[in-house]
């Protein structure tokens, strides 16, 4: 019999995993919501964040420097990707964008192998966060607690920003009807580029934040894209709030499943996706209406 304490611990771990996922899908879902582009290279941008982190820390820069510089560098990569490969394809069938972003993912993987080699890389969490703390019976490293806090604040800030700020209103309108927004006098192609670059920055940030706890390898993008994709399907494609809630849901599901039926954890996540697709094809938070014709 599983005790109450174990359930509490599973809940905390699940929520913590969920926030990590939220950070990973935030950019992906923004891009899909606005641009209808399923960016299969999103995991690659995450990977680049981790590798830039490796290089910056190796070169003697501090972790904190890497936390600022690496995401910006990834943002520049994202910007170039959007301008040179995606922009010419807007308005075409989604298949083109899927193919081009998948192609980009492979290009990035091969480039990473060329530059950093095939073996796993490592960079250390900052020494000031080396200790550990206990929260409700779960031992966290201070670094982990920092990541949890940072991520929660960041995701919450994006959420609030989307709801409350002028930029948020512009993005909501663009998600709904980009052509109309353009006809109101806003250069939507710049909005797209900006959002894609910001999405890349978020992915890069996730790479630097999670890099110290994970294997930094040329193939690390794949599982991330797979899971992130499942989450945005569960949340309702392109629905930001849905994606965040779905991240926490998948995190909790993973936490409980890992406790109770560990062998079925992955199966359950994708089963959830399948059930959502069958019962609510537009996702838990998706709406079938409101898409521009």
């Amino acid at each position: 019999m599983v005790g109450f304490e174990a359930l509490v611990r599973a809940t905390i771990l699940g929520l913590q995993f969920g926030t990590t996922l939220a950070l990973l899908v935030a950019g992906l879902t923004l891009v899909f919501g606005l641009m209808d582009v399923i960016n299969l290279a999103h995991g690659s941008l995450y990977m680049l964040g981790a590798y830039f982190g490796v290089t910056l820390v190796d070169a003697g820069g501090s972790f904190w420097l890497a936390l600022v510089v690496a995401p910006v560098a990834v943002g520049v990569v994202g910007l170039l990707m959007e301008v040179f490969t995606l922009r010419p394809l807007y308005g075409r069938e989604p298949l083109y964008q899927i193919l081009v972003t998948l192609g980009l993912a492979f290009v990035v993987e091969e480039s990473v192998k060329e530059v950093w080699g095939t073996s796993a890389q490592n960079f250390a969490a900052p020494a000031v966060l080396a200790g550990s703390i206990d929260i409700a019976g779960v031992t966290y490293s201070q670094y982990q607690a920092f990541v949890l806090l940072f991520t929660t604040v960041l995701v919450a800030a994006i959420w609030v920003g989307l709801e409350r700020t002028n930029v948020g209103v512009l993005l909501q309108a663009t998600a709904h009807d980009p052509e109309m927004v353009d006809a109101l006098g806003f250069d939507v192609s710049r909005v797209f580029t900006g959002v894609f670059a910001v999405s890349a920055v978020l992915a890069g940030l996730a790479g630097v934040l999670l890099g110290p706890a994970r294997a930094v390898t040329p193939s690390m993008w794949f599982n991330v894209v797979l899971l992130a994709f499942a989450i945005i399907v569960i949340g309702g494609l392109g629905n930001f709030r849905g994606a965040i809630v779905a991240s926490l849901l998948v995190g909790l599901l993973t936490g409980y499943a890992a406790l109770l039926v560990p062998s079925y954890t992955e199966l359950l996540v994708f089963a959830l996706m399948a059930v959502v697709l069958l019962v609510r094809p537009a996702g838990i938070f998706g709406t079938a209406t409101g898409d521009p014709g």
């Binding site: 999670l210 994970r214 599982n223």
Partner: peptide, 17 residues
């Protein structure tokens, strides 16, 4: 016994066991 799916990124939920 603690089985963990291949390719797991976050082991912490499993390590609780």
């Amino acid at each position: 016994e603690v089985p963990v799916p291949v390719g797991t990124e976050d082991y912490k939920p499993y390590l609780q066991n």
